[in-house]
Amino acid sequence: MQKRPVPGFERERIELETCSICKGKAVVNGVFFELVCIYCNGSGWVVGGSKLVLSSDELVTQLSFKLQEAQREIAALKGPAKVSGIQRQHNQSNRLGAGGTNYTGD
């Protein structure tokens, strides 16, 4: 029997998108200097579709979810390198050399 999460015990994942006013930079250009974007409260992120602003504690949680997802994608893309042929002969010890060292035939 497989374990399943109980509804209500996991935080809801909210789809975020960049603020259309500041383009995700969290600041807008004023006359003399940059101002904090008032449409996204200086975060650069709003709720997808509705353009609502999240509270700072909820925003931190949702951004953490996005970061974890991005890190999983990066790890999946890096993955273990598949080595074959001559390169494998140099990287993996075959213990055929003097004293059980790697012999490459060079």
Rank of each mutant, 00 (worst) to 15 (best):
V60L: 12
G105S: 06
I38Q: 07
P5N: 15
K3L: 15
F32T: 04
K51L: 05
G99Y: 10
V47D: 01
V27T: 11
S43W: 00
C22Q: 00
C19E: 00
A70E: 14
V47H: 00
Q71W: 10
I86W: 04
Q68H: 12
V53W: 00
R88F: 10
M1S: 14
G44E: 03
P5A: 05
L16R: 04
T18F: 11
E12W: 05
Q92N: 13
G8M: 07
N102Q: 12
P7Q: 13
C22E: 00
S43Y: 01
S56Q: 13
V83L: 15
V46E: 01
R72E: 15
T61F: 14
K51W: 03
I86E: 10
V27P: 01
L77F: 08
E58H: 04
K3R: 14
K3G: 09
Q2V: 08
G100R: 09
A26L: 02
V28P: 00
C19D: 00
H90T: 11
S93M: 15
A98G: 08
F33K: 12
S43D: 03
I74F: 06
S55G: 12
G44W: 02
S50G: 02
G48W: 03
G79P: 03
F65G: 01
Q92W: 06
N29R: 15
V36F: 07
L59A: 03
N102V: 08
G48T: 08
E69C: 09
E15T: 06
F9E: 06
S50L: 03
C22K: 00
E15M: 14
E73W: 04
G85C: 08
S20F: 07
H90Y: 11
G44L: 08
T104S: 09
Q89T: 12
G85E: 10
A81L: 11
G85Q: 02
A75Y: 06
R4P: 01
N94P: 05
S20C: 06
L96R: 05
V27C: 13
R4I: 13
G100I: 05
